[in-house]
């Protein structure tokens, strides 16, 4: 078993125990995105594309500074721009880096049917293994953040890897490194939460943002990407950050109770017909000659 496999704590579509479960001591890594110091420069967008050698997309102007409406299979990191008027007539220009949130309880992984196409390492990174991806797109359905994107040519789904290649070699993710203002920060989840809470407190105490807070949604078990928001009561204003994300109930229903019910039903059906055969046997044609080719 490779060292890498030992570092896997969740595997999609996997039957039986996880080979490396509980086998490694490792801190959870986390990206902190402080939206209050994001200047929407898009350095992270390009750093991501450059590091991952992703092809550039042809875009068109759409009355916004935002590069494109949503992340794409070749564009894993998108700053969302939102003009937000305030009550006093002034305005805010909210910018938020949108990317895979690396949920502790990842909806994509829960939805994925392919063994090992999505794994979660012990450091919390949720990574897609495209050579095992079958292209069903269930992960797209499972994600509460609209992140994984399908490439129609390769028929595979792609998203932010949290630069697992860099992180595994002791480097920070490319976006984190690039961020000019330091609105992006990288470290252990504990440290980032601590930093985020301190910043939120500073915003409340010194900058008049009474509702400043940290976004680390419990509905998905917390995320490997956490935000500091000026107004944590209204994450939707930041380009549709869901207020209370969780794995869609449909996916949960589908993947757990319905699956077990279905399995039981199918098994029951097979057992039933078997028992029926054992008890009653085949119908033979009576009333005269019997079926010749029984």
């Amino acid at each position: 078993m490779s060292q890498a496999t030992l570092r896997v704590q969740k595997i999609s579509g996997h039957a039986g125990p996880i080979p490396g479960e509980g086998m490694q001591r490792e801190d959870q890594v986390c990206k902190l995105v402080d939206t209050t110091t994001c200047i929407g420069c898009k350095a992270c967008e390009i750093a991501c594309q450059e590091w991952n050698d992703l092809p550039f997309a042809q875009t068109t102007f759409d009355n916004t500074y935002q590069t494109m409406p949503t992340t794409q299979w070749n564009f894993w990191n998108l700053i969302k721009f939102n003009e937000q008027p305030k009550e006093d007539g002034t305005m805010m220009w909210l910018m938020r880096k949108d990317q895979c949130m690396h949920c502790a309880d990842p909806g994509c992984l829960a939805a994925c049917p392919s063994d090992g196409a999505i794994v979660q390492y012990t450091n919390g990174i949720v990574d897609f293994q495209q050579d095992r991806c079958i292209g069903c797109g269930y992960c797209i359905t499972g994600c509460p953040f609209n992140i994984p994107k399908f490439n129609p040519t390769t028929k595979k789904v792609y998203k932010c890897t949290l630069c697992s290649d860099r992180v595994s070699q002791g480097l920070e993710p490319a976006c984190i490194k690039a961020c000019p203002t330091g609105c992006l920060h990288f470290g252990t989840k504990d440290d980032m939460k601590d930093l985020a809470e301190k910043r939120a407190r500073q915003l409340r105490e010194h900058y008049g943002f009474e509702n400043a807070g940290v976004y680390d949604p419990p509905g998905v078990g917390g995320t490997g990407v956490i935000y500091v928001l000026h107004d944590a009561t209204n994450p939707e204003a930041y380009g549709g950050l869901p207020a209370n994300p969780s794995i869609p109930w449909a996916v949960r229903l589908w993947k757990t109770p319905l699956r077990w019910l279905g399995n039981l039903a199918m098994l029951g059906g097979l057992v039933g017909v078997t028992l029926h055969y054992l008890r009653f046997g085949p119908k033979t044609v009576h009333n005269g000659e019997s079926e010749k080719r029984s």
């Binding site: 890498a4 496999t5 080979p19 090992g116 293994q129 290649d165």
Partner: peptide, 17 residues
Amino acid sequence: GFDLAPAYAEMRALKIA
């Protein structure tokens, strides 16, 4: 369905190594 599983997490190589 046995035996064929390769490593579950083949790390991408660091391109600037």
